[in-house]
Nucleic acid binder design. Structure first.
Lengths: 229, 229
DNA sequence: TGAATTACTGACACCGTGTCAGTAAAGTCG
DNA sequence: CGACTTTACTGACACGGTGTCAGTAATTCA
């Protein structure tokens, strides 16, 4: 009897928590739509609330403020990005090919989810004062690390299969590649009009950037044959 | 007499215009100080006005709004940057060395003028709807082109002196290098704490990035000797 | 000097944010 | 099923910043 009651209570609680999570996600959905249309700066919480069919005050019950909402979007972005990069890497034959695939997957991601890329750009440009241990910001940071780990795994794979030269600090290389790729995509996106003006397509530019940025990873001379200890 | 009068009037007008320009610059000075302390988002026009010792309304007489003020800062940033890059390039012996020097000069610039780099980051991340011909934004864009021209000149020099491989679209390469470098610096700045955590210094990271990013420019094999048409 | 132009400001209307007291709804238990 | 508690939700508010404008002070010109 006590068991039944307890079970029943915990059922309700479970259900309520699920619904809460669902609502939370719905609010983020609404925020994404509004941010995409209006941009992060000019987007109004009122619009987010209206789109989520709730009052503005309730939004503030789920998210402390606009910045937290943006961080929630970043987190989603990074999770999806990690999946995409991992999938792209999994389909590539060699470690070196994986790196290229990851670069192109990032480009495709930016193309498919402009809002997510914009969110990451903002996050990347934002200099944090101090990142509290339990904060949302910390969670986003960690989601970022998870993304880098995909690149690092590819680097390690490449070193194993001989398609990538020996590097002593894979994280260093991963961050460099990340910075390069992100920077290039950002230019391709925001300077698209200018690129056209000087007779370049964004795709051409990005293709060049990837080739250019990953070239330095290949082994110096030996064609990978032999060289076993 | 008519001449004298005209001259006198034009003198006053000249003086007034000069003073106006001076005040304009003073407002930008104030804005820079405020932006540096508070960040672009949270900075208040009130503070800019107070620091410039004028009323808030007057600021709006010189600049349409906060965004225009930010663009003015961007323009300054790009002009100074161009000077720095050009100076660095001038001191380097070969075209390839010039490219490296330009990269390091950009890093030094970002280190010396964090606000300017932040301003450029914002500008870079901002996707413009449409850039009107006479607008401030267009002026900033053109200042950006002037910066790229420094890189292009170095590339041409390198192709001439044989330290850089033949590239068919220098602007493509210049933009790539710009994107790479900017992206890397941005990471070094905003992720400095994280870099420390994984045992990397920002300098080490950036040094690596420059070497990595410019490596692909060197000629394939021939040691630059001979090869004249 | 007085008239005209220009530089400047105080005060206002507007809008968005974040908060809070209070209401509606759902869950708990006899 | 009611009474009682807990949780979900909202309307209305105070606050603060932006951009504007009518009006005043200062300069220039004749």
């Amino acid at each position: 009897m006590s068991r039944a009651r307890t079970a029943s209570r915990s059922h309700s609680r479970q259900r309520r928590d699920d619904e809460k999570e669902l609502r939370r996600e719905a609010i983020i959905d609404a925020a994404e739509a509004v941010f995409a249309r209006a941009g992060f700066e000019t987007a109004k919480m009122e619009d987010v609330a209206r789109r989520a069919r709730i009052s503005r005050a309730l939004v503030y019950l789920y998210f402390k403020n606009k910045a937290e909402l943006q961080l929630a979007v970043c987190r989603r972005a990074l999770n999806i990005l990690r999946e995409r990069l991992a999938a792209a890497a999994a389909a590539a034959p060699s470690g070196y090919a994986q790196i290229g695939a990851i670069g192109h997957a990032y480009i495709a991601f930016a193309d498919e989810f402009p809002l997510y890329f914009a969110a990451l750009s903002r996050f990347e440009a934002h200099r944090p004062e101090s990142v509290a241990p339990g904060s949302t910001e910390r969670a986003v940071l960690e989601a970022g690390v998870a993304v880098h780990e995909v690149t690092i795994a590819a680097l390690r794979q490449g070193m194993r299969d001989g398609t990538i030269r020996r590097v002593d600090k894979p994280m260093l290389v991963a961050l460099t590649l990340w910075g390069f790729t992100h920077g290039a995509i950002q230019i391709a996106q925001t300077k698209a009009a200018f690129l056209e003006e000087v007779g370049l397509s964004a795709d051409e530019f990005l293709g060049h950037a990837i080739r250019f940025g990953t070239g330095g990873l290949q082994p110096a001379a030996a064609p990978a044959r032999g060289k076993r200890k």
